[in-house]
Structure formats: C-alpha cells, structure tokens
Amino acid sequence: MTSEPAHMNPARSFQGLILTLQRYWAEQGCVILQPYDMEVGAGTFHPATTLRALGPKPWRAAYVQPSRRPKDGRYGENPNRLQHYYQFQVILKPNPPNLQELYLGSLKAIGIDTAVHDVRFVEDDWESPTLGAWGLGWECWCDGMEVSQFTYFQQVAGFECSPVAGELTYGLERLAMYLQGVESIYDLNFNGLEGDQKVTYGDVFLQAEQEYSRHNFEHADTEMLFRHFRDAELACRKYLEAGEPKEGSNDSRHLMALPAYDQCIKASHMFNLLDARGVISVTERQSYILRVRELAKACGAAWLKTEGGGVAA
C-alpha cells in the first residue's frame, strides 16, 4: 500500500474520508457511481439502490449521495443539523456472507481501530413508508455514536427482494466530526490542507444552509410545489403507461421505468418541501406519503419488467 499524503488522511480531511471509502468499496467489486442528479431525501432513493435492489441480478455499487431534508435545516446555527448533507451508500446484492466483516474492514480503512474503539451492532429496523420498503439490521455504534446504518433489504417498492441486498449507509459528516475531533460540522476540514489553503465545511456550505433554511421554511412557493407534485405524479403515471410493452409485440419489456421513477423522486421531494413549509396537515400527510408510495410501487413493478430487473433481452 502506498502511503497517503497527509491531506488525504480520513482523520483530517472530509474528502479524504470519501475517497478512502470509495477506494475500499471499489476493491470489494463495487461500481463507484456518482451522486444521482436529482434532489433526494436519502441515498436509498438513488435508482442504483431502490431499483437495483429489485430483481435477481447481482449488483454491487457505492456512491456519495447528497441528501436533502428540508425540515432539518437550522439556518446554520445548529452544529449537528443540516438540511443538505452527504450519505455514503453501499449496496451489495446478494449480500455476501461476510458483510459485517467487510463493513468493519471499511471502518479500519478510515482509521477506526477496534482495539480501542467499541463498535456495536444495535437493533434498528429500517422502514421507508414512501418507498414501500423495509429491512432488518442495525445502527452501527462507535463509542456510543451511531456512525452507520446496516440493513438487509427485505422489501422494496412493495416487492420481496430476492435475493436480499445488504445496504450500508454512512453519515459522512458525523463520522468525519468524530474522526477529526471537531464539535461543529462547519469546523470540519474539507480538503485536509492547513493554513491559507484549508477549506472548511462551513466555507463550502454555511451560506447554503442559511439560504436554504429561509427558502424551506419561509419562502418556498407552496402553490408551485403543490402544482409540481401533481405534475410529477401525472407524468410518472403517463411515462409508466407509455413504457408498457405493446400488445402483440414479442418484446415484453417495459421501456421507461427509469424516467418514470425520476418523477416519483421529484414528487417525494416536493412533498418534503411542502411538509417543511408546514402546509400539510397531519391527516393529509399520510395521504401524500401513500401517493408517493403508489408511484414507487408502480415504478418497481415496471423495473421488474426491464433488463435491469432481470428480464432477458
């Protein structure tokens, strides 16, 4: 192994942490993808996880995904909460029998030595009502802090996962704070350099947190968001219908599962923004979640009729 330059050390550099994880999972045979180019609430929404978890085909991928949780914005004033943050996502389908060991290996790679750190797997069942997905697994603790989510997907988009995929989600900022020993997200060293050249997380994102908090809580155009939600919902249905295999054709594949799923993602984000603006009542909330779930299920069904979902070309 070649020795790392100091500014790439995951204990000193946020980007060093990301790059170390990418390299580690690349060695486990993962394709290293780039973030999905849409606003999502969690790394799971990336089609590389949601859709690829469905169907029989083996799949290994890892990627960073910016995640938007409009409600979690704190105008940049809370040292632990952000409305935009990074998740590092790994999916291995089927999960290899030694996935726990592989995970512990990744911790070792970023400098968490299990001779001095207390790493624990604490029960945490995962469920995404909007995606119609659930799985069993743990939150992974390091010295009492939750650093990752570890889930064996049982169902996605209302369909049984066969085979089951193992999913790992690392909360990158929190992990980096622990590794770097800082008390505020904004103090994280982003590029690992010192002095004039040092760029902090705050340099990159503080202004964004302030601006988006204003937007999410005060100014987001709710009328437009409601409209966009309806539009996305309609478009999703429309694309799903248009992509259905033609009657009488030899080709039984669905032709537009992915574009339809984009609209499902969009609807979900619109809902999150509306929720943050406080314009969705408790009872309505449930029905919006249900509407997104119906889209996710329909997209999952379509995906299972594509090549990626296991249908022969």
Partner: peptide
Amino acid sequence: MRWGAASKDSGSLRWVR
C-alpha cells in the same frame, strides 16, 4: 428475515439476523 444468495429462492431459511 432472509439473507444472502439463498434468499433468491422462496422458502429459504428465516432467522432474526
């Protein structure tokens, strides 16, 4: 739950983890 390569078959072993 089900897990691993065996979980592609229905009726595969279920255990708590």
